[in-house]
């Protein structure tokens, strides 16, 4: 690749752009209490939030895989009336303010919600439970997985599936033994993006599942609460989230670009 000298104006604006992202990170790192870092991170509240965040984000990713891969397959392979509309509806949480998603979940599955009363009658309560937090995270994060997997399905060479069928494989075996292995990179990329989004989830979770330590208080919620009372804990939790996110982005950069 040949390097090109950029026009001065472009270079200057690009530098401002980089600074805009770097400076807040620098502020965070500069204020981090590095001497007492381990102490701040190993407080019971912090450890609980950390553990809960991983449980909820991984469970949300598993749920998104279970429901999202079939959905992506339908979108990529089955043309039906209204497909574009349905796809838009299931993608909406990506651009919707998460708080709005949380409110919508509350009025659907809350105790006084459209379906919540029926669920309540059979003894299922979702709001303000860990499972509710998992649903909130899945709601906002699954569209990333669906879009990534759908792109993978659309770009794969479908003639491999034809070859499998002439060898005697029915549709399910074709999916399990040919399609799925061939789109594995896309599924993996989608799952990582989904997990990262679920890990950072805040708005829908606090609205639908509340902020109960040990039950629904995930890392981002703990950061928000700690900022008022113990800023050094908030900073260290933020640094942890930052490190995890950066690691994901660096590891994913090729796949991320390829999927979109």
């Amino acid at each position: 690749m040949s390097s090109e000298r950029p026009p001065a104006l472009l270079a200057a604006l690009a530098i401002v752009g980089v600074a805009f992202f770097i400076l807040p990170l620098a502020g965070l790192l500069a204020r981090a209490p590095w001497q007492s870092a381990l102490g701040e991170l190993t407080t019971p509240e912090a450890l609980t939030a950390l553990r809960l965040s991983f449980v909820i984000s991984l469970a949300a990713t598993a749920l998104a895989l279970l429901l999202g891969v079939p959905l992506a397959w339908i979108y990529a392979r089955v043309p039906f009336r209204g497909r574009d509309l349905i796809r838009a509806l299931t993608t909406l949480p990506m651009i919707l303010p998460p708080v709005v998603g949380g409110v919508a979940l509350l009025f659907a599955f809350g105790r006084r919600g459209l379906f919540g009363q029926a669920l309540d009658a059979i003894g299922i309560r979702l709001p303000f439970t860990t499972f509710g937090a998992i649903l909130a995270a899945t709601f906002v994060a699954m569209p990333l997985l669906v879009l990534t997997v759908e792109a993978g399905l659309r770009s794969m060479d479908r003639r491999y599936e034809d070859a499998a069928r002439t060898l005697g494989a029915g549709r399910w075996i074709v999916f399990r033994r040919v399609t799925l292995p061939l789109i594995a990179p896309s599924v993996f990329a989608g799952a990582v993006l989904c997990w990262a989004r679920a890990l950072g989830e805040f708005g829908a979770t606090i609205t639908f599942a509340g902020n109960l330590p040990g039950t629904t208080q995930t890392l981002p919620l703990a950061v928000y609460i700690a900022l008022e009372t113990r800023p050094e804990v908030a900073i260290m939790l933020s640094v942890v989230l930052l490190a995890v996110s950066l690691a994901i982005l660096v590891a994913m950069r090729d796949r991320y670009l390829r999927a979109f």
């Binding site: 060479d157 034809d162 070859a163 002439t166 060898l167 029915g170």
Partner: peptide, 20 residues
């Protein structure tokens, strides 16, 4: 008759060996 139920063998152009 579905392809998987036909007693046929096909050698495809580019062979299409399953890469995985």
């Amino acid at each position: 008759l579905a392809p998987e139920r036909r007693p046929i063998g096909v050698v495809f152009q580019d062979y299409l060996l399953f890469p995985h």
